[in-house]
Measured scan of single mutants.
Amino acid sequence: ISTPTHWSKLDPKTMKVNDLRKELESRALSSKGLKSQLIARLTKQLKVEE
């Protein structure tokens, strides 16, 4: 399991699906679903981290 990238360095809308999945997995979140779902899930988590 990798260390999550700091929230300020991430822009989920421009990330590739593989990168989105890695970030979600490093935060112990589900990495299953469509790209739009991955973006929404990661965006929501990054707002919590701010």
Rank of each mutant, 00 (worst) to 15 (best):
I1D: 02
I1Y: 07
I1M: 09
I1C: 04
I1A: 14
I1E: 05
I1R: 04
S2I: 15
S2K: 15
S2T: 15
S2E: 10
S2H: 12
S2N: 15
T3V: 12
T3E: 13
T3N: 12
T3C: 12
T3K: 14
T3Y: 15
P4T: 12
P4N: 09
P4M: 14
P4Y: 13
P4L: 11
P4I: 13
P4Q: 09
P4C: 15
T5G: 06
T5H: 06
T5Q: 10
T5P: 04
T5A: 13
T5L: 08
T5E: 10
H6I: 13
H6R: 10
H6F: 12
H6D: 13
H6E: 14
H6M: 12
H6S: 11
H6C: 11
H6T: 11
W7A: 10
W7P: 10
W7M: 09
W7S: 10
W7R: 07
W7H: 14
W7D: 07
W7V: 08
W7N: 05
S8R: 07
S8L: 04
S8W: 05
S8C: 13
K9Q: 14
K9L: 11
K9N: 08
K9F: 05
K9T: 09
K9Y: 08
L10V: 06
L10I: 07
L10M: 09
L10A: 04
L10S: 03
D11M: 13
D11Q: 14
D11K: 15
D11W: 09
D11V: 12
P12M: 08
P12K: 01
P12F: 02
P12V: 08
P12W: 04
P12T: 07
P12Q: 02
P12S: 02
K13I: 11
K13V: 12
K13E: 07
K13L: 06
T14R: 15
T14Q: 12
T14I: 13
T14G: 12
T14V: 12
T14P: 01
T14D: 11
M15L: 07
M15P: 01
M15K: 02
M15S: 02
K16I: 09
K16N: 14
K16H: 14
K16D: 11
K16V: 06
K16P: 08
V17I: 13
V17L: 13
V17F: 11
V17T: 11
N18W: 12
N18C: 14
N18K: 15
N18L: 15
N18M: 14
N18T: 15
D19H: 14
D19M: 14
D19Y: 12
D19Q: 14
L20G: 01
L20D: 02
L20R: 00
L20S: 01
L20K: 01
L20A: 03
R21E: 03
R21V: 09
R21H: 07
R21Y: 06
R21Q: 06
R21N: 04
R21S: 07
K22A: 08
K22R: 12
K22C: 08
E23I: 00
E23Q: 06
E23L: 00
E23S: 03
E23G: 00
E23H: 04
E23Y: 01
L24E: 02
L24Q: 01
L24K: 01
L24T: 02
L24H: 02
L24D: 01
L24Y: 00
L24V: 02
L24I: 03
E25T: 07
E25Q: 10
E25G: 08
E25M: 10
E25H: 02
E25Y: 01
E25I: 05
S26Q: 13
S26V: 15
S26A: 15
S26G: 15
S26P: 03
R27Q: 01
R27A: 02
R27S: 01
R27N: 01
R27G: 02
R27M: 03
R27K: 01
R27L: 01
A28K: 15
A28M: 14
A28C: 14
A28F: 13
A28Y: 15
A28E: 14
A28R: 15
A28S: 15
L29T: 05
L29V: 04
L29R: 06
L29A: 00
L29P: 01
L29F: 09
S30Y: 08
S30W: 05
S30M: 11
S30P: 14
S30K: 14
S30Q: 08
S30H: 08
S31A: 13
S31Q: 15
S31N: 10
S31W: 10
S31P: 11
S31D: 08
K32S: 08
K32D: 10
K32G: 09
K32T: 11
K32Q: 10
G33T: 00
G33L: 00
G33K: 00
G33Y: 00
G33H: 00
G33N: 00
G33Q: 01
L34R: 14
L34P: 13
L34K: 15
L34T: 11
L34W: 08
L34Q: 13
K35C: 04
K35Q: 05
K35W: 04
K35E: 10
K35R: 06
K35L: 06
K35T: 05
S36F: 07
S36W: 09
S36M: 07
S36A: 09
S36L: 08
S36K: 09
S36V: 10
S36Q: 09
S36D: 10
Q37R: 07
Q37I: 03
Q37L: 07
Q37G: 06
Q37F: 06
L38I: 05
L38A: 03
L38K: 05
L38F: 01
L38D: 05
I39Y: 05
I39K: 13
I39R: 13
I39N: 05
I39D: 05
I39E: 10
I39F: 03
A40N: 11
A40Y: 15
A40G: 13
A40W: 11
R41I: 04
R41S: 05
R41L: 05
R41M: 04
R41T: 06
R41G: 03
R41D: 04
L42F: 03
L42Q: 03
L42A: 02
L42Y: 01
L42I: 06
L42P: 04
T43H: 10
T43Y: 05
T43S: 12
T43L: 12
T43P: 02
T43Q: 11
T43G: 08
T43E: 09
K44D: 08
K44C: 04
K44F: 04
K44L: 05
Q45T: 10
Q45W: 06
Q45H: 05
Q45K: 13
Q45A: 12
Q45D: 03
Q45L: 04
L46R: 03
L46Q: 05
L46G: 01
L46S: 02
L46M: 12
L46V: 06
L46T: 04
L46C: 07
L46E: 01
K47A: 08
K47G: 09
K47V: 07
K47Y: 05
K47C: 05
K47H: 06
K47R: 10
V48P: 01
V48I: 14
V48F: 13
V48N: 14
V48Y: 07
E49L: 00
E49I: 00
E49G: 00
E49Q: 03
E49H: 01
E49D: 04
E49R: 00
E50Q: 11
E50S: 07
E50A: 06
E50I: 14
E50G: 06
